[in-house]
């Protein structure tokens, strides 16, 4: 009799999440392939000389991506967790992966996007210290001195190199 209350081993948890990921990836690839095929319906399929037109390459790639997506889905359904003779899921030792700090990642993306939006308005030289300081704090820097001096020095360096020395206009 299978013990339904038994804790699922870490290893299987990890494998199951990978399988779930493969399913998502499989469907994602099929969706991308469908999108490319849909968009390419307006491209000329061939040129007047009978040679491949602009639609040929994207359609070929869409087809191959679609096939790869299906292969990933089939692999997902054909693979099962390792079990013993009685049918119970086998426990194996595995090292736990460090948890992803999604909050930090999200904040970093928002910070970079904010910099890209704000820098044309207030100028890169003024936006850059805020970006660098925020990123340093997100990565774990807590020294107030470094959080202030490094971004300021970097902004002066960027201004000196790009704007003054190389003559590249910054937003």
């Amino acid at each position: 009799m299978t013990d339904l209350n038994r804790e699922i081993p870490d290893n299987f948890q990890r494998r199951r999440s990978i399988f779930a990921g493969s399913m998502i990836e499989g469907w994602l690839l099929i969706t991308i392939a469908t999108g490319v095929l849909w968009d390419s319906r307006t491209y000329p399929p061939s040129l007047s000389s009978g040679t491949p037109g602009p639609a040929f390459f994207p359609r070929l790639l869409a087809l191959l991506l679609g096939v790869a997506g299906i292969v990933l889905l089939i692999k997902r359904y054909r693979t099962t967790a390792p079990r013993d003779k009685k049918g119970s899921v086998l426990a194996t030792h595995s090292s736990k992966k460090p948890a992803t700090k999604w909050k930090n990642l999200g904040l970093m993306i928002v910070t970079i996007a904010g910099f890209l939006l704000v820098s044309p308005q207030i100028g890169t030289v003024f936006a850059l210290p805020i970006l660098i300081s925020s990123l340093m704090w997100l990565i774990g820097e807590r020294s107030a001195l470094l959080l202030v001096t490094v971004p300021l020095a970097f902004s002066v360096f960027v201004y000196g190199v790009f704007s003054v020395a190389l003559g590249v206009p910054l937003p």
Partner: peptide
């Protein structure tokens, strides 16, 4: 360099370099 400084400067210089 500390990762906090190095990675922040890498992102900063990358964004500026991409724009330039």
């Amino acid at each position: 360099l500390r990762p906090s400084i190095l990675m922040s400067l890498v992102v900063g210089i990358s964004l500026i370099g991409t724009f330039a």
